[in-house]
Design a binder for these strands. Structure first.
Lengths: 148, 148
DNA sequence: AGAAAATACTTGCATATTGCAACTTTTTTT
DNA sequence: AAAAAAAGTTGCAATATGCAAGTATTTTCT
């Protein structure tokens, strides 16, 4: 059998590079980590700090500081939950939303370009495979905790 | 159509977490970046600094320092090329080789566990898809330079 | 009700990582 | 023989990281 790890290692590295490309929108310069955070906030509805940090597999203290920066940059807003004032709800500001959406659009465009190098059939297969893989990894006992 | 980026983002994140798990072998603690470097050295035959740095998409100065650490830790050896003494050939020491091979084995074991959650047919499809994807990304004009 | 424990998040601190600019050394070009 | 190029290395300043210990709030336990 072929070396499976090799395949995945290369793929992951490539995808990492792809992601790196996406991190400058207009004037703003966004780090890779910040881009991941914005991505989460774009999809989740007013999550707490812990929820997002856990989803990203980040240490909560590092995350806390990253959020402080994003708030300072005017991309994220943080407001205490009225029920439980220990918890902060995170959301994107309009500017943060614009940037996150731009990055998302750019990534999708890049992916479309990648897929343009395959047939429609292959594309369907690849997408199906990634879904399968995500599903299988989520079931794994050994890997990928903290779970997404 | 489903959100393709979402799928890839999640997959990449999970694979990143998977990789993180692999970075302690026996007593030695190896960082993620170091593990990527060891991986390259395990496969390539006496590459130069630039070659590896480029393959990994790393800045050469950062790479230089990472190699210094690995040499200090006794995992990598660095010897000037006789033809051209500007160039250094990199290779794994026996201990470095042991660690790189251990990480590789562990990763392959993790992957096997992930694949155990699918049918043989699905597994074949997924592997084929990753190959396709790597191939398509290598053809892309927009992404993934420095090329691997 | 009131003390103790738990939870959510933040800060101190020490360490590691990063990348640009400028450097050394060696080789190639002119 | 001088100039340019190439391969690596350092200075430095900015940033990221994670553990331990902190604050503030809520829950649990008598």
């Amino acid at each position: 059998m072929e070396n499976v790890r090799e395949l995945f290692q290369v793929m992951t590295r490539r995808f990492g590079l792809l992601n790196k490309n996406c991190c400058q929108v207009g004037g703003s310069e966004v780090s890779m980590v910040q881009s991941h955070i914005l991505y989460e906030l774009l999809r989740k509805d007013n999550p707490s700090m812990q929820q997002v940090a856990e989803n990203l597999g980040m240490d909560i203290t590092t995350f806390s500081r990253q959020i402080q920066n994003l708030v300072k940059q005017g991309l994220v807003s943080k407001s205490p939950l009225s029920n439980d004032r220990r918890v902060y709800q995170l959301s994107l500001t309009p500017q943060g939303n614009y940037i996150a959406a731009s990055i998302d659009a750019q990534m999708n465009q890049y992916l479309a370009e990648v897929f343009s190098n395959m047939s429609e059939f292959e594309k369907e297969m690849v997408i199906k495979s990634v879904k399968l893989l995500n599903n299988a990894m989520s079931k794994s006992t050994v890997c990928c905790k903290p779970l997404i």
